[in-house]
Design a protein around this nucleic acid. Sequence first.
DNA 1: AAAGATTGACTAATCAATCTTT
DNA 2: AAAGATTGATTAGTCAATCTTT
Lengths: 114, 114
Amino acid sequence: VEYQVLAMLSTSPERTMRLSALAEVTNASLSRLSHLFKRLEVRGLVRREPDPVDGRFTNGILTDDGFKTLAAAAPGHVAHVRSQVVDVLSAEQLRRLGMAADRIMSRIDTSEIN
Amino acid sequence: VEYQVLAMLSTSPERTMRLSALAEVTNASLSRLSHLFKRLEVRGLVRREPDPVDGRFTNGILTDDGFKTLAAAAPGHVAHVRSQVVDVLSAEQLRRLGMAADRIMSRIDTSEIN
DNA sequence: AAAGATTGACTAATCAATCTTT
DNA sequence: AAAGATTGATTAGTCAATCTTT
């Protein structure tokens, strides 16, 4: 999830995303994301800013250090996922795995009582 | 994993299995399983015994209390998994999901350097 | 030495309660 | 009140080191 957060931020405009949006795309709870983001912040990889438009939102921003750290980690991370997951399945199998996972996650999301 | 441990024990001869075997079927590390088993033991759901044949093994045994707890939890647990996973996919999709997961897990297992 | 298992320290995730802004 | 987020306490998982038995 830490990698996902850094990666999502790196491809976003201004390298910025709302924490609630990050929680949603990573399928993490808001509480988990808040703790996780704090750890990244302590390490200097991200920072927070209240949304100037709507103060309820908090914007997460990737720092230059965070971008460098992501860039350094990416090749190894991608290679690892490829060798452990992607290369083990056919293109068709991988597509079907993704579809099944999406179905299950959306079912869980809609049935949850918060 | 706690549920899996209780369920596996309940269908084993003498309601007994080696901890290393439990770790393998649940895809948990031996360390994780040891901690988890200790928690179940504190709750009185399982107990340990050294294997009389080979003292390196530890046998995990389901207690009567553990069996009752499992029996009480099973209907709800099964219904939940069914509604969140099984019922969301077709029989064919479910079979393919299982096969893909098995492939990935066995790849991870064989590439691991302990 | 190797296999099975355990331990303790550290890190991460969960859960419920709380706070802020709208 | 509702949405977004945070906090602190508890529980769980990880990692490396260690112990026991073969």
